[in-house]
Design a binder for these strands. Sequence first.
DNA 1: TCCAAATTTGACCAGTTAGTCAAGAATTTT
DNA 2: AAAATTCTTGACTAACTGGTCAAATTTGGA
Lengths: 213, 213
Amino acid sequence: MAESAARPNGGKQSRIQTENRALIMQAALDVFSADGYRGATVDRIAERAGMSKTNLLYYYPSKEEIYRSAIEQTVEAWLDPFDAIDPDGDPIEELRRYITVKLKMSDENPEASRLFANEVQRGAPLVGEFLSTRLKALVDEKVTVIRTWIDQGRLAPVDPYHLIFTIWATTQHYADFEVQVQAILGKQAKKPGFSDQVAHAVLSILLNGIRPR
Amino acid sequence: MAESAARPNGGKQSRIQTENRALIMQAALDVFSADGYRGATVDRIAERAGMSKTNLLYYYPSKEEIYRSAIEQTVEAWLDPFDAIDPDGDPIEELRRYITVKLKMSDENPEASRLFANEVQRGAPLVGEFLSTRLKALVDEKVTVIRTWIDQGRLAPVDPYHLIFTIWATTQHYADFEVQVQAILGKQAKKPGFSDQVAHAVLSILLNGIRPR
DNA sequence: TCCAAATTTGACCAGTTAGTCAAGAATTTT
DNA sequence: AAAATTCTTGACTAACTGGTCAAATTTGGA
């Protein structure tokens, strides 16, 4: 008897499984991030993945499951560099590195950023739980680190929560509002060195502020 | 012969017209900002506006037209305070005022912010033209102003474009990621003085930076 | 090669959606 | 008050959507 594709044998995936699941995830990222959960159609995701809708539903049992997988994948990738902020490192260097990594992620995988943004803007029906438990705990932890740095005089006395929000906002903006950035900057936003230029400008503003010195 | 409601007589709107159009626009803002263009349904907008779908379609001929109206309204409100940045004012004061106003807009009308964000993230099918013409021109104008301020030594030498993006990103974040902010800050994010607290923190970071002085 | 399992698909179904239509109810004008 | 206009609605349609099913095709190991 043919088993569900989710677990064809002892948890191992065949070559075809691995390939097709990867194709589906990439297509899901593209379509969900562009059209939102309700706006996306399984047909479109299938077309983008180069297979029939029926076949796609052989690998993932429902639209919601495809979405859930795509979101989970995105969230994990999103958390890693934040978690990596080192309490024992130099504050400015740690934040510089985090901002640089996040800008790079926005540049290289803007669809993931938009998918997550879309989910949160919808009211986070799926990741709401995650936000108020795991993410909140992690943020609280980093906030303590930042407070220590401030107490040691190694960082200006800013509200750590809003500092984190400001970093998230700024770095995500270049993915989420990519079209707007390109409309305003023109073709320069597509040139090779652009992401370095962004990193330099953003770091300059967040590190030094805009008040003349 | 009954004429289209769009122009019942010489352009004047009856009391009922005015009332219902306002109801529809508010409902459209709510629903489109939560579910996106494709995810929103005319039925839901009508329900939210407290009338039948058929009646709603009497006032706006199609879903797209409802969306277009809501977007246009939002864009206009969004442009005003940016346009108001005064070349002859004090740079820090002008930017402080702009940031404060934008934060207030995010606080008071987060739906509008999310509607616009959603449109841009979708690839700006409707406002794309606006972004690369009118908005670009306005941004270029303000960039010149900021450059002058920098040349006069009244502002730190930052890239004006990215300064503007940073301000937009940060101020919009509190509307677009409202759920995330609340999940992390808890109930404190709902208290009366919260928006002032946000304004203070964001201004402190953007004006002074986070490097210790 | 042969066969069982895995993969793929077209036809189909039930529910939803944008928009139409004709007719009834409310409001304004005369 | 009567007539004309504006407003409102339920019933309907055609297109689309998520998901099922049985049958065909392909794959990989013995």
